[in-house]
Simulated assay, not measured.
Amino acid sequence: MPTVVCVGCGAEVSDVSGPVHAYMCSSPGCWQLYGEVTAQNLAQAELRLALDCYAAQHPGGAEHELRQRQSVAVHLTSLCLHIEERLPAAQLMTRLNRMSRTVLPLLGASAWPYLPPPERMGDMTVADVRSVAPEQRAACLGDWAEAVWRSWSAQHETVRGWARLALKGR
């Protein structure tokens, strides 16, 4: 089957027609891979990581799309809280569900700012996660999260600030 490079994450994916996310910028083959990964029997923490990684690797259009700016901000903050603060998935869900209501007022903002994305989205993508055996999936998801977080290093201080504000709402 012919392949293409995903317009969002840069993964080599099947060149298929089909749906994509409403505002994340991806190729149909990449969106299909994400659906296959999340359709597997993943634990809550694994689903959270997959969502955060995928969203952070598909930020296209954020400079013009408010929902996409919010998506990038919230999912990067989730990766930060997971990787640097070791916050469990259940606590992440609670904090992130109310993050816009708690953090934006503390920033004196009504919408999330645009974060210029990195030139490269990291050394791993959803295609790597899809290709591993089920017993290796949890470790691969952790590696994916680390790779995505590293790729956004130019924005770490900003996101760490948001994470600190999100933690204040304990």
Results as ranks from 00 to 15, higher is better:
156 H>T: 03
39 A>P: 01
64 H>V: 11
19 P>H: 06
93 M>I: 12
134 P>R: 09
108 G>C: 00
23 Y>L: 06
69 R>P: 08
7 V>Y: 05
111 A>Y: 05
150 R>I: 04
170 R>E: 15
145 A>D: 13
112 W>R: 04
168 K>M: 12
145 A>G: 10
131 S>V: 05
116 P>G: 01
2 P>I: 15
33 L>M: 10
5 V>Q: 09
125 T>Q: 04
16 V>S: 07
31 W>E: 11
12 E>G: 03
52 D>R: 03
169 G>P: 08
99 M>D: 03
46 E>S: 12
12 E>I: 05
92 L>W: 02
80 C>P: 03
75 H>T: 09
45 A>N: 13
99 M>L: 12
4 V>H: 03
41 N>Q: 15
42 L>F: 03
44 Q>F: 15
62 A>L: 02
90 A>H: 07
45 A>Q: 12
67 R>M: 14
3 T>N: 03
53 C>M: 11
31 W>F: 15
85 E>K: 08
149 W>L: 05
28 P>Q: 13
91 Q>F: 11
102 T>D: 12
23 Y>F: 09
144 W>M: 14
80 C>F: 14
147 A>C: 13
9 C>N: 10
136 Q>G: 04
91 Q>P: 04
60 G>H: 11
53 C>W: 07
15 D>K: 07
75 H>E: 15
152 W>R: 04
94 T>M: 10
42 L>H: 01
95 R>H: 10
38 T>S: 07
63 E>Q: 14
149 W>T: 00
26 S>P: 04
107 L>S: 01
42 L>G: 02
64 H>N: 12
110 S>T: 15
68 Q>N: 13
72 V>H: 00
129 V>I: 13
149 W>D: 03
158 T>Y: 07
160 R>A: 02
19 P>V: 07
130 R>Q: 15
167 L>C: 12
79 L>F: 12
43 A>G: 05
69 R>F: 09
128 D>M: 12
100 S>H: 02
86 R>Y: 03
35 G>L: 01
32 Q>D: 12
113 P>A: 09
32 Q>V: 08
143 D>H: 11
165 L>Q: 06
161 G>Y: 05
133 A>S: 10
30 C>N: 01
138 A>Q: 05
65 E>K: 02
62 A>C: 02
105 P>E: 09
78 S>T: 06
110 S>M: 08
9 C>V: 05
89 A>N: 14
100 S>A: 11
116 P>R: 13
60 G>A: 11
61 G>K: 01
86 R>G: 00
80 C>Q: 10
143 D>P: 01
161 G>I: 15
52 D>T: 00
145 A>C: 10
87 L>E: 02
89 A>P: 06
116 P>F: 01
72 V>D: 00
75 H>W: 09
23 Y>G: 03
9 C>F: 10
106 L>M: 13
103 V>L: 06
150 R>L: 09
6 C>L: 14
115 L>P: 04
95 R>I: 07
38 T>F: 04
45 A>R: 15
